[in-house]
Amino acid sequence: MPHAKFFRIILSVIFVLLAIFLLFLDRFMFAPIVRMFEILILPISLSGFLYYLLRPIVGFFT
């Protein structure tokens, strides 16, 4: 059926938009994830920074 693919794409777009709408509607649902991100971002990024800085030296030793 030629229209089947078209309807599937339209339906997918509607679901994606609905998901985005729900994401903005229920922010409290994502609050723990955001908080976790806030807690972890600094130590992880600092470790990542030092990792790339020190990796060549570790490579040299090994």
Binding site: L42, P43, I44, L46, S47, G48, L50, Y51, L54, R55, V58
Partner: peptide
């Protein structure tokens, strides 16, 4: 916490990259 945690994370990142 940062001073305590970063060296530990870094150690494992460097060891098991």
């Amino acid at each position: 916490v940062l001073i305590g945690v970063v060296p530990v994370i870094l150690f494992f990142m460097l060891k098991d990259g």
